[in-house]
Amino acid sequence: MSVKKKFKGLSDKAVGWLFIGPTVLLLLAINIYPLVYAIKMSFTNFYANKIGREPQFVGLKNYIKVLNKEAIWEKMQVTASFMFWTLLLQAIIGLGLALLLNRKFKGNELLTTLIVLPMMLSPAVVGVFWTYLYNPQVGLFNYVVNFFYDLGSFDMIGSSTLAPWAIVIVDTWMWTPFTMLICLAGLRSVPNYLYEAAEVDRASKWQQFIYITLPSVLPFLLLALLFRGIENFKMFDMVVELTSGGPGSATELASINLKREAFEKWKTGYSSAFAVILFVTIFGFGNVYVKVMNKIKER
């Protein structure tokens, strides 16, 4: 029997399900089921390493414990600060680079390729080699800083004041190209006749930027920041390799703390509650952000 004949009797809806069925099943198995299971676990005192100990229902105890724990709020503050500075810097530098590369000049393609290189590296590798760059004795970073302004020996990842900046710098170095690429796509979608009309109306370059370029590129920039925001909220590998969350807990982001609670202390119930809280937080923020972004687009 030919394939054509075999599927002849299927309706369009059935064929549609045939195509999306495997994806839906996969999604249910690796996303939805773990999520539902984690929510269920978050109401228990389950420890995954305590074999034979049946989990008991504890109601909202884990949620109350997470929300009342001072250390958790410290990690959330560290995460918020990390997100704020990385997003701000990546927005400004990314847009600036996009504006630069939107111009036609010799070597444009080569420069674009070089700028994009950091985001192609593995975050764990980036974390490891920046520990060498930050080394106070032989690190290139310290050498360059001292070349311009003599600060003497300073330890970027050993100081609680500098370590948060150390991770912000590395993330900005690595992911600004992403923001830049999205912004560049936005810039290239702006029709030329808008600028030509502005020229006819004798608008200055600054006015062209404010009234044409920025509104056109803003939805793209916001989209890039949404992606970066979600990624940085769950940032883990680069920071673990770079600082292990230290010194002390100066760079211990929420995701690092969650991993320690879940897979080192094996407090499965507690960490599930923490994970659900983080999920709701990012989901809530994400939704509000998308609504704001859509409103900006509509303007």
Partner: peptide, 17 residues
């Protein structure tokens, strides 16, 4: 491990930080 982790954090916070 549950006993080790808080010690790591608190001692590192005091000694290094």
């Amino acid at each position: 491990v549950e006993l080790m982790l808080p010690m790591q954090e608190a001692i590192h916070d005091y000694v290094v930080n």
